[in-house]
């Protein structure tokens, strides 16, 4: 009696699990095959740790590239979401993993560069080996469709006139967006009130509901579709050059803030310190191929994959620059 009911309980759990297995099998079959890589690497599945909860842009980007790398290198790239400690846990784990190329992670501004400056964590950028850039997303200043400010000029003029009166939602207090706004007030004496929110969804809500005056938001598909449809009006972008997809929107630099060109989220591939050169170059080459792959481009969004691929060296430089930039503002080391 006892045993039977215990079994019954288990079958209920097993049915869906079996369905899941069947589907995983299907996926596995379609992904396997293809040409093998030149070198020995990779000869077993690669774990790719994403330092955020599943569902966000980071996961979407990682999944898109993982399936492409998988095709190219003949081994599964398994995405493991490891949120917690704002990505600190994932980075800590990867920094102490064996540098054999079978544990990689998504390196980006917050978890990799800023987190160790704010909190005591056992890693820094020097504990990682860069491989290459997957995607770059600028931050864009947007207002609602019935905002009184129709251009960046009007917006900044109003901000200068009434310091601290305009509220601008940002994706969090320890993001490059927050730092740029802080520098806007420190270096150019234009003060807006930054309202840290959690994620694009909350920011979108607060602008649509008229709770804040503007957003300084990481550009992504959702922002794109709002701009296309007219409920968001872009005033300025944070990248050094104008963005190809908003040719009419000025950069902050053009608006008279030449220093403010750094609020760009970089999604790079990094591994633990001491990754062998052969592994780095294999991955780097494949990453470059993937960043031209139409399927990847469609999933990540064509504007976010830089036309000019940035490899290991370039990514190293990007992170080093970020470190230099944020250290005086955040650093306490």
């Amino acid at each position: 009696m006892t045993m039977r009911s215990a079994l019954k309980k288990n079958t209920v759990v097993f049915l869906p699990a079996l369905a899941g297995l069947a589907m995983m099998g299907l996926v596995g079959c379609s992904a396997a095959g293809s040409q093998a890589a030149e070198a020995d690497y990779p000869s077993k599945p690669v774990t790719f740790v994403v330092p955020f909860a599943a569902g966000g842009p980071s996961t979407v980007t990682a999944l898109a590239f993982a399936s492409c790398l998988e095709k190219g290198l003949g081994q599964p790239f398994v995405i493991e979401n490891q949120p917690g400690a704002s990505g600190g846990l994932a980075m800590q784990e990867v920094s102490s993993a064996k540098p054999d190329g079978y544990t990689l992670t998504l390196g980006t501004n917050g978890p990799l560069v800023m987190n160790p400056m704010i909190n005591k964590l056992n890693y820094g950028i020097e504990d990682f080996t860069s491989v290459g850039v997957m995607a770059q997303m600028p931050t864009v200043l947007v207002v609602g469709e019935d905002s009184p400010y129709e251009s960046a000029d009007e917006f900044f003029a109003a901000a200068e006139k009434h310091p601290g009166k305009l509220s601008v939602a940002i994706p969090g207090a320890t993001t490059s967006a927050a730092i740029e706004l802080k520098r806007l007030s420190d270096e150019y004496d234009i003060e807006v009130t930054a309202v840290p929110a959690v994620g694009n969804a909350e920011m979108t809500t607060s602008l649509l509901g008229g709770h804040v005056d503007a957003l300084f938001i990481t550009d992504h598909q959702d922002v794109q579709s709002r701009i296309d449809e007219g409920s968001f009006v872009p005033l300025a972008v944070s990248s050094p050059e104008r963005a190809g997809w908003y040719p009419d929107v000025p950069t902050l630099a053009e608006q008279g803030f030449p220093e403010l060109v750094n609020a760009v989220s970089v999604f790079g591939v990094v591994g633990p310190k001491g990754l062998p050169d052969a592994v780095v170059s294999t991955l780097e080459a494949e990453l470059q191929t993937c960043s031209a792959d139409p399927a990847v481009i469609k999933q990540v969004g064509e504007m976010f994959i830089p036309e000019q691929f940035s490899g290991a060296g370039a990514l190293d430089e990007i992170f080093a620059d970020m470190q230099d930039l944020y250290e005086p503002i955040l650093g306490q080391k």
């Binding site: 909860a53 569902g55 966000g56 969804a201 809500t205 579709s225 999933q299």
Partner: peptide, 22 residues
Amino acid sequence: LGIPSNVVLAMLYGALLLQGIT
């Protein structure tokens, strides 16, 4: 509105993005 109101729905949102649908 395209605004996910909790973690699970954010995940669904991600699933749609992966399909190229915003």
